[in-house]
């Protein structure tokens, strides 16, 4: 996969078209600045967001639990959240301390992370006031490929389990930034049916995604935080790997 500014912009525009087609007609989507302007024009009070409460991060475990959370949402809820660009607010907190006071939508079995919503932003005000923005400024470690297996759920339309590679660009990225980007890729891939219960994902860390040989089915593109006038590819989900 050869990344170009045009490909990155096209990917970002297609995401906007899928999530909120009515916005596209009235906006300038010919540049990263135009995309950012669209996002900034949204009225927060009208949007849905998920609050993700994080105690600690083990990346493969977090990938699995994020997919399971996305799989747990019904279609209408997922669609509504998609219209708000799967906005997620990451907060530092200990789910175990919050269970009695708040209705947590889902809690990871080890208590490392929990989700509330999707809900109107105002509905989570009390929780947000109690917690702090999640800060994780540690660079993402170089790590060997790790397979993440999703359990087979009950009640979902069955399809045979697939195995994909999940590439993560780690150069210059912190754990906190990575969660933000990967979260969008994973939950939207679940909503698009690319990831389902029973699937396997091999998490692979690479410095950058440009030049990736594997065919990519979903690409996460966002403003490059080092160069805000550019876009950057943060994570990629490949086509299914051949069955062995």
């Amino acid at each position: 996969m050869t990344l170009t500014p045009e490909l990155l912009l096209d990917t970002a525009v297609r995401r906007m078209l899928t999530s909120r087609p009515e916005l596209v007609a009235e906006c300038d989507l010919s540049s990263p600045a135009g995309l950012a302007a669209v996002r900034n024009s949204l009225n927060e009070a009208d949007e849905l967001a998920v609050v993700s409460v994080i105690r600690s991060v083990d990346l493969p475990g977090w990938v699995r639990e994020t997919c399971l959370f996305a799989l747990s949402l019904d279609e209408a809820t997922a669609r509504a959240w998609r219209r708000s660009f799967t906005r997620t607010i990451f907060l530092a907190g200990q789910p175990g301390n919050l269970r009695e006071r708040f209705a947590l939508t889902r809690v990871a079995p080890d208590g490392s992370v929990a989700w509330v919503g999707p809900a109107p932003v105002a509905a989570t005000r009390t929780l947000r006031r109690l917690l702090k923005t999640f800060v994780a400024d540690r660079p993402v470690d170089a790590a060997p490929p790790t397979v993440v297996e999703l359990p087979t759920p009950g009640g979902r339309a069955a399809r045979h389990a697939l195995h994909r590679d999940l590439y993560l660009a780690v150069s210059g990225h912190t754990v906190g930034e990575t969660l933000i980007q990967l979260n969008h890729l994973l939950v939207e891939a679940v909503q698009d049916g690319l990831i389902n219960g029973g699937d396997r994902l091999t998490l692979r860390h690479v410095p950058r995604l440009n030049g990736l040989r594997a065919p990519v089915e979903a690409l996460r593109v966002d403003i490059d935080h080092d160069n805000p006038d550019r876009l950057r590819a943060y994570a990629a989900l490949t086509e299914p790997l051949p069955q062995r």
Binding site: S56, G93, L130, D137, V175
Partner: peptide, 19 residues
């Protein structure tokens, strides 16, 4: 959260007190 490059908080959220 120092292992992830974050700070340390006192957590009495179970009593309704902010981090």
């Amino acid at each position: 959260q120092r292992a992830d490059g974050g700070p340390v908080y006192l957590d009495a959220t179970r009593y309704g007190l902010p981090l």
